[in-house]
Simulated assay, not measured.
Amino acid sequence: MEYAAAYGPVVMNAVKAIVVLILGWFLAGLISGIVRRRVVSHPKIDDTIGNFAASLVRWLVLLVTIIAVLQLFGIEATSLVAVLGAATLAIGLALQGTLSDIAAGVMLIIFRPYKLGQFVDIGGTSGTVKDLNLFVTELVTPDNVQIIMPNGKAWGAVVTNFSAHETRRLDLTFGIDYGDDADKAIQLIIDTAKADSRVHSDPAPWVRVTNLGDSSVDLGVRLWCDASDYWELKFHMLKAVKKAFDENGINIPYPHIMSVPKSA
């Protein structure tokens, strides 16, 4: 009886704490999911803000859950605030990297140099943005490799966003033989480009002689297209122009090795 009287309340509080933790964890996931769906469903708000808001709400619910658990063991919220206030400096020094990531995450959401689904290069690391939360930015490379980058590093790095605009300019260079007709080759490239519906007519395809190389006359090509068509158009143009050159007698120079026999 004495054992039950002495330890009974502690055991009950421990059980309650476990129940509160489970419910808090469940509610954190439930509420964050609802917030994400509500924000994402709004036509004027992009998915990036939805993910970030859901992450913020989840951590707030978990914080409230932890405070509730501490109160079950007799630690009042006011006492907890006082303790946290006294330990602010120590926590700040110990978690300065984490706090920096949170601050950087907020800045990334405010200025939005990239959004979910966009292909970016962040400080030399390229990939499609899959997630942006309080602490990290998650990228997926074209070969399906996951990259986790702390927000602090992402915010402090040079960001190249290849998907920021709806259109992109495709730049290509084709070398032809010095003995070939440059005007004929230019017209072949223009005709090939105009035959592809992915090439925009405004600005019109641009082809000029851009360099006289050691073994070729280089023709620079500039084509405008939708950003989503960039890579497929590039691969198609390389193949199509090569075929057009072959059919019309335009030669593409390539390195040769000449053997000169030494006379007796």
Rank of each mutant, 00 (worst) to 15 (best):
D202R: 11
L116V: 14
T98L: 13
F174N: 04
E138L: 13
L99S: 06
G105Y: 02
V81R: 13
F174H: 01
D101V: 01
I102G: 05
V145H: 15
S163A: 14
I148P: 01
L108D: 05
G123W: 10
T65N: 05
N133P: 05
D101G: 00
Q71G: 09
S126R: 14
N161I: 10
N161F: 11
D180R: 02
D191F: 01
L99M: 14
L80G: 08
F135Y: 12
A185N: 00
A87P: 00
A195L: 06
I110R: 11
L70M: 14
V159P: 03
V106H: 01
G124N: 08
L93Y: 13
F73D: 10
L93H: 08
S197L: 07
W206M: 10
H200E: 12
T173M: 10
L70D: 03
S100A: 15
I91A: 15
G175W: 01
A185I: 00
F174L: 03
A68G: 01
D101P: 04
S163D: 15
T128L: 09
S197V: 09
I147Y: 06
A204R: 13
H165C: 03
T160D: 09
A90S: 06
Y114V: 06
G127T: 01
V69L: 07
G74L: 12
L132K: 02
G124A: 08
Q71P: 00
L63Q: 11
T167A: 06
I148W: 08
M107R: 12
F73I: 09
T192Q: 05
T192R: 00
T192G: 02
A164Q: 14
V207W: 01
V106G: 04
G92P: 06
H200T: 02
G123I: 10
N133E: 10
A182Y: 07
D131E: 15
P150H: 03
Y178D: 06
L108S: 06
I66M: 14
A87K: 00
T141P: 06
N151E: 09
G74R: 10
S79W: 14
I147R: 09
P113A: 08
L99W: 09
Q187L: 07
I91H: 07
A157H: 08
P150D: 04
A193T: 04
D177R: 05
V64Q: 11
R169Q: 13
I186Q: 06
G117C: 11
A82G: 12
I189Q: 02
T160I: 14
N133K: 06
K194F: 08
D101K: 02
F174C: 03
R112G: 04
A195D: 11
S197Q: 11
F162G: 03
G179Q: 05
L139A: 04
F119D: 03
D101C: 07
F162Q: 05
